[in-house]
Amino acid sequence: MFLFVVRRLFFAVVLLLAVSVFTYLLFALLPTDPAALSCGIHCKPETVLANRIRLGYDKPILEQYWHFLRGIFVGRDYGFGQTAFSCPAPSLGYSFNQHACVTALIGETFPVTAFLAIGAFVLWMIIGIGVGAIAALNKGKWQDRFATGFAAVGVSLPTFYIGLLVLFSVVIWFQILPFPSYESPLDNFSAFITAMILPWLVLAVLSAASYTRLTRNGMLEAMNEDFVRLGVAKGLRLRVILSRYVMRQALIPIVTIAGLDFAGLLGGAIITESVFSLPGMGRMSIRAVVDSDLPVLVGTTMVAAVFIVLANVIVDITYGFLDPRVRVS
């Protein structure tokens, strides 16, 4: 098991390096000139050149990458003399559009994304697994048909559509809630909740749909297993059989997908953040795309990659804990 974890971590690091190389090279190959973009339309050629040197874009691409990589660990200094400034480690670059270190920008926007992700995740796991379990236990009855319908509708409805619909109905037509305007929970908790409740619900309900389906099918499959029959034949209570036998089996594939979904969300819930104007990492990424703000894009891509690779490792290790056949061989 120990060796397994070490090997998984080693491959995770290799994978992250590969991701960084590819993102960096891909963005470097784009026809846009970051130095030209850094000072607006009416930029003199001298300024562009100066900026290029200051930002290090005059160097060969491999050297640029090396500075980028180094910056993550030791921080990075830009320019000389009076115009010099630095981004402390871990530096993911400097955005000239926003005149700020990318790390600092991510530091501002990430908590919003994280709050959104955590809240929605908790809600959708409860709704998804709950509804799925109710459906499995009432197979063929109205509860099951309702859950199956919910799953089908939820999976096929796009977030931006439902998001806007909810926003219009709740906020504009019925005026149950004020227009969401994000506040940090540390500053104003009730405003935070008011702003987050709709995005949480929309994200949770739509994501829960596929978990409902997974839970229902996983449980029905597990209930047909011989070992569940043996559990019943032992005289165990239904509650014990469900938790120790059925759910244990049904949850394993759910853990995998939940881990990856959650990690994906931490990389930025682009659509939800945009619809509900939440100042999170997803909305920042979209703005960076529009503005060709390459350093920010490289930074957010790297952060998202870290979460997804990490989630993969954690899921694999969790697997070992959940399934002794993986752990003890």
């Binding site: 297993e225 011989d226 029959r229 043996l230 120790r244 036998y245 244990r248 002794p324």
Partner: peptide
């Protein structure tokens, strides 16, 4: 009490 046909699937793999 009951014994089943396939001992490979009759035991709970998680305990």
């Amino acid at each position: 009490a009951m014994i089943f046909q396939d001992p490979m699937s009759a035991l709970n793999p998680y305990f």
